[in-house]
């Protein structure tokens, strides 16, 4: 088990008009709360349009973490920032679905690259739910 000090924070990188957060560790509740605060603060301070949370290094995603990620996406949206979650492990995705959890309000991308591509496009207009899935 990697020991993470009590003051450790997940780094948030600003790239052009985006914030990129790469989670490469097991998320404790403290880290999740800290990240939520940090992201909100950063969005407020810097002028960005997109947020990418790369979860390729996450160990598990339980109801708390998935809820927190969803919340981050919703908060960001209220502040005019679109959120994309990238690199979710297929087994974790399956576990989420089996638990009946989802990440509504957040887009998903296969990897960081497609996430950036996705955000670089114009935001989606209100589209018919059926067609957009």
């Amino acid at each position: 088990m990697t020991e993470i000090s009590d003051t450790f924070r997940i780094p948030i990188i600003k790239l052009h008009d985006k914030l990129i957060v790469s989670i490469q560790m097991a998320l404790s509740d403290r880290l999740v709360m800290q990240l939520k605060d940090d992201i909100t603060t950063r969005i407020e301070r810097v002028n960005i349009t997109g947020l990418i949370i790369d979860v390729s290094g996450i160990d598990v995603m339980d109801s708390y973490i998935s809820r927190a990620l969803r919340d981050m996406g919703l908060i960001a949206r209220l502040m005019g920032v679109r959120t994309v979650i990238s690199g979710l492990d297929p087994m974790i995705a399956m576990t989420l679905v089996e638990m009946g959890l989802d990440l509504k309000g957040v887009s998903a991308a296969l990897n960081l690259e497609t996430a950036i591509e996705l955000l670089d496009r114009k935001p989606a207009k209100t589209r018919g739910k059926g067609a957009a899935a």
Partner: peptide, 13 residues
């Protein structure tokens, strides 16, 4: 806090 979801999820898993 989502306890119901957590426990139901656990039961499903």
């Amino acid at each position: 806090t989502g306890m119901g979801i957590g426990l139901k999820g656990t039961r499903n898993l």
